[in-house]
Simulated scan of single mutants.
Amino acid sequence: MTDQELLDLSAKAAGYKYAKNGGYIVVDGIPGNWNPLSDDGDALRLAVKLHIGVRAHGPDHWLQKNVAVALWDAGEQSGRVTIQVDSDFLRATRRAIVRAAAEIGRNMK
C-alpha cells in the first residue's frame, strides 16, 4: 500500500472531511497539511481519535530490538501492527499508527 493510500484510509477511519491539494491532504479543523506519517502531532491526534494504543519498545525490551508496536481495538477489528525500527523510533511509531488507522479505514463499510 502506498503512503497516499495509507493517508486516505486513515483520514476515512478518523471520519475527517478532507480534500487533496496537490500531493497534500487538507483536513477540516486541522491547520496546515495533514500528514501523520511525518508530523508527530497529526499522528498523536489520529491515535487518540481512533483509540490506538502505542507502545514503543527499546532495544533491550523482550529482546525485540528496535521495534515499535501499535495496538488498536475497534470492536471486531482488533490487532497489532509491528514496525521494525532502523534508527528513528518516532518515524516508526508514526507509521505504525497510520498503518493501524488505515486497516480500520479499509475495513469500514
Rank of each mutant, 00 (worst) to 15 (best):
W34T: 00
G75I: 02
D42R: 11
I97P: 01
L71H: 13
G32P: 10
V27E: 03
L50P: 01
A101Q: 09
A70Q: 01
H61V: 08
Y18K: 00
G79E: 09
A47Y: 13
A47T: 00
G41N: 06
E76V: 06
A96C: 05
K49Y: 00
N33Y: 10
G58V: 03
A100Q: 00
L63S: 06
A100Y: 05
L90P: 06
N33L: 04
A74E: 08
F89Y: 14
L37K: 00
D40F: 06
A47G: 09
N107R: 15
V69K: 05
R99D: 14
N35V: 02
F89W: 15
G79K: 05
R106W: 15
K12A: 07
A102F: 07
W34C: 05
D28G: 01
K49D: 09
V69E: 12
R45P: 00
A100I: 06
V98G: 07
S87K: 07
L9A: 15
W62N: 12
K17I: 11
V67S: 07
Y24T: 05
K65Q: 06
L46H: 01
R99N: 15
H51W: 03
A96I: 04
V81M: 11
L6H: 14
G41Y: 09
L46D: 03
D40P: 06
A96M: 03
R94E: 09
V98Y: 02
A11S: 15
D60Q: 13
I30Y: 14
M1F: 03
H61S: 03
A92N: 04
A100F: 10
A14M: 06
D73W: 12
D28L: 03
A101W: 03
A101F: 09
P36H: 07
A102G: 13
A74R: 09
L46S: 05
G58P: 03
D73T: 04
W34I: 08
S10D: 07
Q4C: 11
W62H: 12
Y18H: 12
L46C: 05
A96F: 02
V69F: 02
D60M: 11
I83K: 01
P59N: 10
H57F: 15
I25Q: 07
D8C: 02
G32C: 02
K65H: 05
I97Q: 04
